[in-house]
Structures are given as C-alpha cells and as structure tokens.
C-alpha cells in the first residue's frame, strides 16, 4: 500500500499534493492496483471529500486532536509513522513542498531509511528506483530506494493533478495517534497575519513582470512596476537583484525564492539561470525581453523581444495606455 501525506489550504487539498496523488496512482497501476491511503493532518475543509474521491484515493486517515492543533514536523511525522505501522504501507510520499520535504525527512530519520527529495519519476518497482532533481533541477539523480518503506517527495509541477479515470468512494478514518512530548517541543507557537501582500500576491498573480540585472540599479524598476500595475500583476525579480539589495527578497522568483505559475510572465533583463527557471517554468506563457537573443530565458520563452528593457518596456507602457485611451 501507498501512503501519501496531503497538504490542505482553505480551498481543499493543494494542487501540488494532488500532483503527488497522480504520481501515486501511476505507481499503484504499475504495481497492479496497489491501494492508496491519504493522510490529512489538522483541520480540513469539506471539499477534500469530493477531491479525494475524484482523485482515486481508497482510504483517508484524518488525524486531529490537541497534539495536532499547531504544526510540528516531528508530530506530523509521528502520525504518519503510526499510520504506516498499522497499515503496513511500503511507500510513504508527500509533495516536494517545504513542508512535504520537512515531514518526510523527519519520517526518514525516525525510521532510519534513505529519503529521496524531489522525485520526478520511477523506473522500476523491485528494486524501486527513482529519478530526482538535484542542483536546483540542473541535473538529475538516479537513486535506489530498496529499503521499506520507500520514502520520498514528488517534485512540484512534474505531474499533472488530473482526476482518476475511475473515482473511488474512500473509507474515512478519524484518528488521533498519541504524540511523544519530545515531538511537540518544536511546534508553531505564534502566527502572523495570513499573507495577502508580499510573496502571496506574487505566487497567485495572473501576470508577473520580472526584472533582473538588466534593470541596472535600484532606480531601474519604475517602468517594470508601471507595466505590472497596468496589467494588474506583480513584480518578480532575480537573485542578483535581491542580493545587490535593489529589491526585497520576498520579490525573488526561483529555487530560493517564490515559485510562480501565472498566465503570463514577462522577464526583463533576466538571463534565465536554472535556479531562476526553477521558479518560473510553470508560467503558461513567457515573453522575454532581453538584449541577448542567445540568453537561456529567450530560447526557453514562448515569445521574446530583443532589445533594451529601458526602451522596450516604456514603449509597451505607452502603447497600452494609448489603446486604453
């Protein structure tokens, strides 16, 4: 059996967790229809019931209780460990999100088994072998996961969160496995405002206008910000921009910044290093503006304008305003 830990937000199971379910279904099919169990920890919205049925989950373990009121990586892993021991699952997976990687690393340490982070695909069941992203996606690693349970996370956007061909009617288990005191020492004790502005706005924006070293300095962002505003979008920047202190880090897109998936991304003066690409590759359409026609961002984009961003962007802003009258 396969156990997947799924993350939820107010709307239901997150997209990246549903991608992990898609991966689990493929693994299940390869193994001749292995049952998929989902673990949900803490509060869950009602919508998850329909989602899990549509996505082909067989059993749902909903874990709640006072030990699970506030997030703790150790307590979450303790619950997964408990479910695994009771059900005998041979695979435990989660999304390759910050939390997914954290909880699965806790579980691997507790069980003293290897962990594979950011798996893209599997190539065999016995021995179980996977391919995963390393160096921010610049290279791939083939890795054996021979020990049981095999524990890993699934790289974001590597699978599509499509519903199952045949929906299921999952059996629902309400549970509250005990947690050792030591596993509750490091838990969230205070929360700030739920994020709206800052990184939140960037990750949910329909349009993101990006700017990199080509902006030239802290004063070089006026036109890209104006364009972003006109398109009701957000500004995203490269790491060069944040490490030179031109813009704050929460605007950074990439491996060590935010991952964006807008309808349209307009990177201006950004070369498209693999670590930046890691954060923007799931944009629906990319329009690069760059002086260098050979820049990776240009060759990987759907559309490009070759030119100086300080000339092209103001011209686009003027044209937009002109057409709006």
């Amino acid at each position: 059996m396969i156990l997947v830990w799924l993350e939820c937000d107010a709307a239901g199971v997150t997209d990246i967790s549903l991608e992990t379910v898609a991966f689990a279904r493929s693994l299940s099919a390869a193994g001749g229809g292995i049952a998929i169990r989902a673990a949900l920890i803490g509060d869950v919205p009602d919508a998850v019931r329909d989602q899990l049925a549509a996505h082909g989950v067989n059993d749902v373990h909903h874990v709640s209780g006072s030990s699970y009121d506030a997030y703790s990586g150790a307590a979450w892993a303790s619950a997964l460990q408990d479910i695994r021991e009771r059900t005998g699952c041979v695979v435990v997976a989660a999304a390759g999100s910050p939390r997914g990687n954290e909880v699965i690393a806790h579980l691997a340490a507790r069980l003293d088994v290897p962990m594979a982070a950011n798996v893209l695909s599997f190539s065999g069941l016995s021995p179980f072998a996977v391919t995963r992203q390393v160096a921010g996606g610049a290279a791939l690693e083939e890795m054996r996961l021979a020990r049981r349970p095999a524990v890993f996370t699934v790289a974001g956007h590597s699978w599509v969160a499509t519903p199952a061909d045949t929906p299921t009617s999952p059996t629902w288990h309400e549970e509250s496995p005990p947690v050792a005191e030591a596993d509750l020492v490091a838990r969230v004790t205070a929360r700030g405002e739920t994020k709206e502005e800052g990184p939140g706005a960037l990750t949910t924006a329909r349009v993101v206008v990006g700017a990199g070293r080509g902006a030239g300095g802290p004063g070089g962002f006026d036109h890209v910000i104006e364009l972003a505003d006109l398109l009701d979008g957000a500004l995203g920047v490269s790491r060069v921009v944040t490490s030179l202190g031109w813009r704050p880090h929460h605007e950074q897109v990439g491996q060590t910044g935010s991952r964006i998936s807008p309808e349209l991304y307009v990177p201006c003066g950004i070369s498209g290093a693999i670590q930046h690409w890691a954060g923007c590759s799931s944009s629906k359409t990319i329009l690069a503006i760059n002086t260098d026609a050979e820049a990776p961002m240009v060759t990987k984009a759907h559309y490009a304008v070759i030119g100086d961003m300080h000339e092209v962007v103001p011209a686009v802003v003027d044209e937009l305003k002109r057409r709006r009258g």
Binding site: L231, L264, L287, A288, A293, V298, T299, K300, A301, H302, Y303, A304, V305, I306, G307, D308, E311, V312, P314, A315, V316, D318, E319, L320, R323
Partner: peptide, 18 residues
C-alpha cells in the same frame, strides 16, 4: 521562441499578444 521584434518598435506586437 517566436521573436516579436527588436527594440521599442515591438511594443505594438507585445500589446497585441496581451
């Protein structure tokens, strides 16, 4: 990649794309 143009003259093609 589809090159929409070079320099500021490409602005109209960009807004067409928008």
């Amino acid at each position: 990649v589809e090159i929409l143009g070079e320099g500021p003259e490409a602005a109209a093609a960009v807004v067409d794309l928008f």
